[in-house]
């Protein structure tokens, strides 16, 4: 795909960890710490995948997904990264069915899990 990957999380250490894993696969990353910043960066449309934290200080991860769904033409694949939801959480299932997100990655995760997602998204 060749495009950048956006990491959205208000916790800098979390961004650092995810960046390290993605960069180890030879991919480029950009980070955003707020929902607003994420929407701004995504609106330019040059990201293939976004790793989106479920709870951001200014808005919910799913709200960010909903917004980009509405405004961005070339939509990135959205991976919801969350410590707030549980596995099989109906909120996550609904978001997947709605097409807002394509994957769910539960915190804490193994690095292989994250890499597996990257591969499945053919990054």
């Amino acid at each position: 795909m060749g495009k950048n990957i956006l990491i959205v999380d208000d916790e800098p250490d979390m961004c650092w960890v995810v960046s390290q894993i993605i960069q180890s696969q030879g991919l480029n990353v950009v980070t955003a710490y707020t929902g607003e910043d994420a929407c701004f960066k995504l609106s330019k449309g040059d990201f293939s995948v976004v790793f989106l934290d479920a709870k951001l200080p200014d808005m919910d991860g799913l709200d960010v997904a909903r917004r980009i769904h509405a405004i961005v033409k070339e939509r990135p694949l959205v991976v919801l990264v969350s410590g707030y939801h549980y596995r099989d959480d109906p909120i996550v299932r609904n978001a997947q069915e709605e097409g807002l997100i394509c994957c769910f990655l539960a915190k804490p995760f193994s690095n292989e899990e994250l890499i597996g997602i990257l591969i499945s998204l053919s990054c």
Binding site: E11, D13, M14, W16, V17, V18, Q20, I21, A54, K55, S82, G83, Y84, A106, K107, P108, F109, S110, N111
Partner: peptide, 13 residues
């Protein structure tokens, strides 16, 4: 849950 899983995820990775 959110606040504890964040540091756990960082430690784990």
């Amino acid at each position: 849950a959110h606040e504890i899983r964040n540091p756990l995820a960082i430690c784990s990775s």
